[in-house]
Write a protein that binds this DNA or RNA. Structure first.
Lengths: 193, 193
DNA sequence: CCTTATCTTGAATGTACACTCAAGATAAGG
DNA sequence: CCTTATCTTGAGTGTACATTCAAGATAAGG
């Protein structure tokens, strides 16, 4: 008996980056062997096929992003400044030149919509969970009287998620820092009023 | 001397639909020959290559969408109700099952970002023109005192465009009619207050 | 140290792709 | 009605792809 040698997290993070940069269709197995350092046989032994690599990479992405998000709210500070700080991170990513400019989940669901319902479901489940995480924080903000909105935390979170998806797409059409920051300010003020 | 037989608009609209459904990478030339009815040689004679077909299809898309948008504002009615009616159309498209659920421009720019700068530029130019068309209408609304916003028409249009991009993406994760309508209402009230 | 189960290797396979091109078809100009 | 430029046809070409698999390597159990 022999144990697998490769570092699963490293492999999936590398795959994650490749899928983010090239998209699902254009990320070839050859490219995945290059960035992961694994040979085709090993990749297929571990993940069955390209779709298996993708789904595993999505899972890793979700884990990483979830941890990143929660890190903004694990202090004892009020919710809203934390949420504003998180929004500032997204703005930084939008304005940066690297692959973090786009969200792997929204990019992928846009690509595979109507082509693979299993992948679509995984992606929408993950994005719904993201919205729920935002709703949880906004609910805390309401409970702590940081905001007294005329909408539910759920509705606010939905609007905020929509805004984030739109912000990332918009930044692809206009990468002007002032404009993106303005949009983020406007989005935040809709939530925090 | 012989004149081309095929109907260019028909061909490009068919190509448009294929690209919208399958994305740029996964729309094969074989599929394009099927949906257009043209043989490979004719397609290559008319548009050089796959990228040529795509760019021509984008141009047709822009023409069609521009016409559709302007049709909402060619009456003498106030701007805001017209804009609200246009937003209702987008909501209908988002909730429908066909390929109009996604915008070819935003879908494509998300896909090819970082892969083909020429295509990216064409797409962002078109999306910027879309934003300008919205800004033009909002400017009229301000001039006619339909709204007295604390932001410029430009800024409002930017936010509205961002919202539309986000709305279409969000609808892929949650196709509940009530939620999408609520988001559209919220988006519109940000603009019209 | 040998067996055996498992992992690694990378060449091989069949398919699908973008694109080409030479032969055939067709209409305008003379 | 013939010439000629242009369009249409669709089989053909080379490449890149996802996937397979048999041979080699390696570690745990006895």
């Amino acid at each position: 008996m022999r144990v697998a040698e490769f570092d699963r997290e490293f492999v999936l993070r590398q795959a994650m980056l490749a899928f983010t940069q090239c998209g699902y269709a254009k990320t070839s197995m050859q490219k995945l062997t290059q960035v992961t350092g694994l040979h085709p046989g090993s990749l297929y032994a571990a993940f069955s096929n390209k779709k298996g690599v993708f789904l595993a990479a999505i899972e890793q992405y979700q884990t990483d992003k979830n941890q990143q998000f929660n890190a903004f709210f694990c202090n004892n500070a009020p919710v809203l400044p934390n949420l504003r700080a998180y929004l500032a991170l997204v703005v930084t990513e939008c304005l940066g030149g690297d692959s973090m400019k786009v969200c792997l989940l929204t990019k992928s669901i846009t690509e595979v919509e109507g082509q693979d319902s299993q992948i679509s479901k995984v992606l929408s489940d993950n994005l719904n969970a993201y919205e729920q995480a935002i709703a949880f924080q906004l609910n805390r903000a309401i409970t702590q009287h940081e905001i007294t909105p005329n909408r539910s935390a759920q509705q606010l979170a939905r609007f905020f998620a929509m805004g984030l998806y739109g912000l990332r797409t918009y930044a692809l059409t206009n990468n002007n820092a002032k404009d993106i920051n303005q949009l983020a300010d406007d989005l935040f003020s809709v939530i925090s009023n």
